[in-house]
Nucleic acid binder design. Structure first.
Lengths: 341, 341
DNA sequence: TTGTATGCGTTATCAT
DNA sequence: ATGATAACGCATACAA
């Protein structure tokens, strides 16, 4: 087992001082040509690489980014993560991921753990429970310590920091408007409990589009499903007790589930009923029929989040008069078979 | 901005020495009751938390695990990752993820970077390119340095280390055997290029099942698709030029694509043709018809990999007579609508 | 009971 | 041109 070699080893072996070795390896002008060559050759031979931890301690810079997301087995988050990882990696940063699992406690614990020197900044999306409790003290503490933070998608106005979101309201508006333009009049909204910030925004867009087109929003055309463990009955009952000719779903899975049950009921898609879902994931592309969706550009979102974070990390702005941005990414409607054209 | 507080700050403020503070916070018996209380109270008040980096440097232990996977937007890897993350987190470890993006170079670069002190051990699945090149020097260097390594799924026999795999050959055998038992005779295999270790194993199981049942394997019933950018034509042509009554696909996506095109051709599933795919992902559950698949138990795989790694990290075994295990997880056949029952 | 000194691996400042 | 020393934050063996 060849142990990792350190400056000290090289120094001892070559009978020079540690600082000479350090300088020689950095090609410092103040070291003699032959000494430099000797040291560099030896270092190459034994494959010397500086120890990251020691450098982190010295520089008070870890070159690590902490990413905290609610779930990793989830197309959208995965996509954002890819964007983060790519950008970070290309700029010399590594990524430490913690999954909050939609739990407030896990989010807090992980955040505090990483905040003790392991990372230079955070990128995160709030857990369901955190949004529900409306408790953001852990975020506040981190920002007060001067650790840069970027929130994406599931954000909160309670915290002053950089944010990346999509134009949820506008794109929901456009989606519903589009449904109306194709003659649909009884348009349902399938959503989650509205402590989800994004769901709320999407519902607003839905409502506004209806009203601007002279339709009024009916509560009974809004179905709120639990975030996990959806059961078919709720959906079936919803379709049975309402005449519906179009549906906007706040996520892909809800849309797929609804399409299935609607089809089972004998409805033809898109002739009798149209569907649009948020999250342009893999299901949308391969469902039958294929689903018209809102593309959230997750990878771009991640890339921008990473860009904002690294900029903050590397800028030397004197606290206080700090300035924060909220970047809004334009979502795109991807039209497929579930809506007529 | 309240700066992170260190032992030094506390010591200075309380006019005691750093080591007294250090010991007091560890509740050492050798510190006087009142001093301890004073220090602990102060530390709590200012929310003192030891700096992870400093501890890492001291202990030569980072409590970080490096995970290198080919792709993160991929159900199987994501699932394994979740298993790793959960287990690691529950045992006090954080996870640094690097995505090799199926590239040999990225794999090498990331591995070398992390190996310089950032992590205590690696969990990885080989990139496509690495398997193709059959070059594992980067793995060899890491293990020679005494850094524990666990390979999963895409493994190689060239490297001596712990491994976690599924019984690819057996489960492929069982799948094909099952197809035969339901009367199928012309069974196709849709696979990738066979430098993928797992694909090769699955092909072996396929062939053996045929032969054990008195059928012989025909090359023209084996379709090799490129790993990315599959085009429909290749598949269509394959179905047009061959009479086929069942298909085994080495992944979920291939199965979904094939099912679509078979249906387009007018074949009924599973009456005219059955399908079984590897990877029990989200597509399988929501495709029409739903797909019978091989469940690879990714989360369990990740959990076991993490368990093996952490055990190695924390064991004090004297190099040399080290012993490595290969854990084989039993895959399960999940029967759905794409096969008759 | 408390404090001093040393070391983890590196770099930077200041001698020589 | 080279080396000694201090510092990053913490822990611990050893003195006092």
């Amino acid at each position: 087992m060849k142990q990792k070699i350190t400056l000290k080893h090289i120094a001892r072996e070559l009978e020079v001082s540690i600082s000479t070795v350090s300088k020689a390896l950095k090609n410092s002008e103040e070291i003699g040509r032959d000494t430099k060559e000797k040291v560099q050759a030896f270092a190459k031979l034994y494959n010397y690489k500086p120890n990251n931890i020691a450098i982190s301690l010295k520089n008070k810079r870890t070159k690590n980014i902490g990413v905290i997301i609610p779930d990793i087995v989830h197309h959208f988050f995965t996509t954002v993560f890819r964007g983060i990882e790519k950008y970070a990696n290309a700029h010399g940063y590594n990524v430490i991921v913690c999954v909050s699992d939609e739990s407030f406690d896990k989010e807090v614990i992980n955040m505090e753990l990483l905040a003790n020197g392991s990372i230079d900044g955070f990128i995160m999306s709030l857990s369901a429970e955190t949004q529900q409790k409306n408790d953001f003290n852990h975020l506040k503490e981190v920002t007060e310590q001067g650790i840069p933070l970027v929130l994406f998608d599931r954000v909160t106005e309670e915290i002053d920091c950089d944010k990346v979101v999509i134009n949820d309201m506008e794109i929901a508006y456009r989606a519903v408007d589009k449904l109306i333009k194709t003659g649909r009049k009884r348009i349902a909204l399938v959503t989650t409990e509205n402590y989800f910030n994004v769901s709320k925004k999407r519902a607003e867009g839905y409502q506004k589009a209806l009203e601007d087109n002279g339709l009024k929003m009916e509560e009974r055309l809004v179905l709120k499903l639990p975030y996990t463990e959806v059961n078919d009955e709720m959906i079936t009952k919803f379709f049975d007790t309402n005449e519906i000719d179009a549906v906007l779903c706040v996520n892909e899975l809800f849309a797929i589930l609804c399409m299935r049950l609607a089809q089972k009921k004998g409805l033809r898609i898109p002739e009798d009923i149209s569907f649009i879902g948020f999250t342009n994931g893999i299901l949308s592309r391969y469902a039958t029929p294929t689903l018209t969706t809102v593309e959230q550009h997750g990878e771009k979102m991640g890339q921008i989040a990473a860009e904002m974070l690294i900029k903050k990390i590397e800028s030397e702005i004197d606290e206080e008069e700090e300035t924060y941005r909220t970047e809004v990414i334009e979502a795109t409607l991807i039209e497929r078979e579930s809506t007529p054209n």
